[in-house]
């Protein structure tokens, strides 16, 4: 009853909290050409755990912004304009805080839950694993 597979179908969160599940979902997204959404989701989690006093943290915030938010990437297209503006302002003013990507992460997560996650559960990658 508590097999990994049972957990994966419970929620996107349980899938991503499992090593095999996250790996398999990543494989699926690579095939669908939208693996950036998952990398962004993990980057937001990683960023939240960083030490704000560490100079590295500002560089990571900038890197996340440049790679996923400021361009026309798949992540950027799924974010609300206000969310992008909020992040851009924080980066510009070098005012970073641990939760600055939280809203963006939530938006991306909702899209994944309603779309990629559902598709994954009926995908070849998943069924082959079963």
């Amino acid at each position: 009853p508590d097999s990994p597979l049972a957990r994966w179908t419970k929620s996107l969160h349980s899938l991503l909290g499992d090593q095999d599940g996250a790996y398999l979902f990543r494989t699926f997204l690579e095939r669908e050409k939208c693996v950036d959404t998952l990398d962004f989701w993990f980057a937001c989690n990683g960023f939240r755990q960083m030490d704000l006093k560490d100079t590295k943290t500002l560089r990571v915030a900038k890197a996340i912004y440049k790679r996923y938010v400021e361009n026309h990437s798949i992540v950027s297209k799924q974010l609300k304009p206000a969310t992008k503006t909020y992040i851009r302002d924080g980066i510009k003013k070098q005012q970073i805080d641990s939760v600055m990507f939280d809203q963006a992460q939530t938006e991306i997560q909702r899209v994944m839950e309603g779309n990629a996650y559902q598709m994954f559960l009926t995908s070849e990658v998943y069924l082959e694993y079963l």
């Binding site: 990994p4 991503l16 909290g17 499992d18 090593q19 095999d20 599940g21 996250a22 990398d39 993990f42 980057a43 937001c44 989690n45 990683g46 960023f47 755990q49 960083m50 590295k56 560089r59 990571v60 900038k62 890197a63 996340i64 440049k66 790679r67």
Partner: peptide, 20 residues
């Protein structure tokens, strides 16, 4: 000094699940 890509990769990896 690490490149931006390395820092980003490190950040992503740090958040990936390590155990089942």
């Amino acid at each position: 000094i690490d490149s931006e890509d390395d820092l980003l990769q490190e950040c992503i990896s740090s958040a990936m699940p390590k155990t089942k």
